[in-house]
Simulated scan of single mutants.
Amino acid sequence: MDIKYLSTTALSKELQLPAKEVFKLLSDNGLVRRMDDNWLLTELGKNKGGVIKSHPRYGSYIAWTEEFKQDEIFTSKEEEKNLLTSTALGKHFGISKFRINPILSELGLVQKSVKGWTVTPLGKLVGGKQLEYDKTGVPYVCWKSSILTRSRIINALKEAKGDSIEEKNEVQEKETIGFREKFEATHRSADGHYVRSRAEMLIDNWLYMSEIVHAYERKLPVEEDVYCDFYLPVGKVYIEYWGLENDPRYLHRKSEKLRVYKKYEFNLIELNDADIQNLDDILPKKLLRFGIQAY
């Protein structure tokens, strides 16, 4: 099927925006750049589907796929007005605006830039929009109002305030309690965490002795009721130790967890029994893939 392309002028007509404003949006987002009196297509613009076309009368020009008009950079000014800033989120939840982005970062929704904050792929899924200040170019993230209905985000912000969290529904609660009753956290690691097996204790101790900040049994920042074994805020990395490989119920649970990790493209390190005996060799290599240096 032939791909239909629109010149930037034709694109502006489709968007019902002045051509000058469309070029500014493209330039502000790094898709084109000005050189002398000409607009040049950048590599980022090519990745967005931009191409160079030639016309016998008008010469070379930049064109875009028809689908490009749906791109998020063309968020209407009216829609932009309804987006929530970190300050607005802070007021809604009664949290300082300076704490909001670090909390959202811990959830994997934003990440710290050289200056400002940028939205992650997961952040985009929950309604995050990447913007930047006109005068400084510093990036920041705003949110659709639907973020106020996301239970995982609501609970994380409540936890940050020290508020109590409502219990899960009965089915989820029974399943969670059943697993935790069967495998009680009786192994105390060096940093004080109580974990559910000797293997988890060895992993926890290794992370602690390597001075790597980590959480144990942290809920994933998604609506699915899934908990990881370990979470490393630096690098946004999750660690799963797979133990009971001969238990059908455990294998089903493992399959469901892997489905969620894949769905949200989370950084995941998987460990098994053989790895536990050789953590000093295995873990540093796996962590380095995500930019975490152990030694």
Rank of each mutant, 00 (worst) to 15 (best):
F98S: 15
V260E: 04
I73R: 07
A274E: 11
G235D: 06
D229H: 15
E265D: 00
V22S: 04
E21W: 11
D163M: 07
L40Y: 11
I177F: 11
F183C: 10
F266V: 02
L25D: 06
L41H: 04
A190Q: 12
G137R: 05
E80A: 15
F179N: 08
E200L: 00
W117N: 06
P121K: 00
L283K: 01
P121C: 00
Q293S: 14
L26F: 15
E132W: 13
G235R: 05
N205L: 07
G178A: 01
T42R: 15
K129N: 08
R33D: 14
F183I: 07
F266G: 01
E245G: 03
W64M: 06
R253M: 07
D163P: 05
E14K: 00
L207W: 03
E159Y: 08
R57K: 10
K285D: 11
N101K: 12
D36A: 15
L251M: 14
L283S: 01
S146T: 05
E223N: 10
R152S: 08
N246F: 08
K262C: 02
Q111D: 05
K263R: 12
E66D: 02
G59A: 14
E166A: 08
L244F: 03
S164I: 00
E66R: 07
T9C: 06
S54Y: 13
I177V: 12
I52S: 06
E167W: 05
K158H: 12
G127W: 10
L288Y: 15
V119L: 08
G192H: 04
R152E: 02
I62T: 09
E67L: 12
I239E: 04
P221K: 08
D280H: 13
V234R: 07
Q16C: 04
K144R: 15
K161E: 13
Q277R: 14
E211Y: 09
S164F: 00
Y241F: 12
Q130D: 12
D134L: 07
R152I: 00
G178Q: 02
L84K: 04
S105W: 09
I282L: 10
L104D: 02
I292T: 06
G192A: 06
Y241G: 05
K144D: 13
E224K: 01
K286C: 13
V222K: 01
E78F: 07
D28S: 02
M201S: 14
L25G: 10
S7N: 06
G116F: 05
E72T: 14
P221S: 09
V119W: 04
R249C: 12
E256P: 15
R57F: 07
A274L: 00
T8I: 04
S255I: 04
K48H: 09
K48P: 13
G123D: 01
L107R: 03
K286M: 13
I62Q: 06
V237K: 14
G178L: 00
L17M: 15
I292L: 13
I154W: 01
K81L: 07
V114G: 14
T186Q: 06
K4A: 10
T176N: 12
L148S: 01
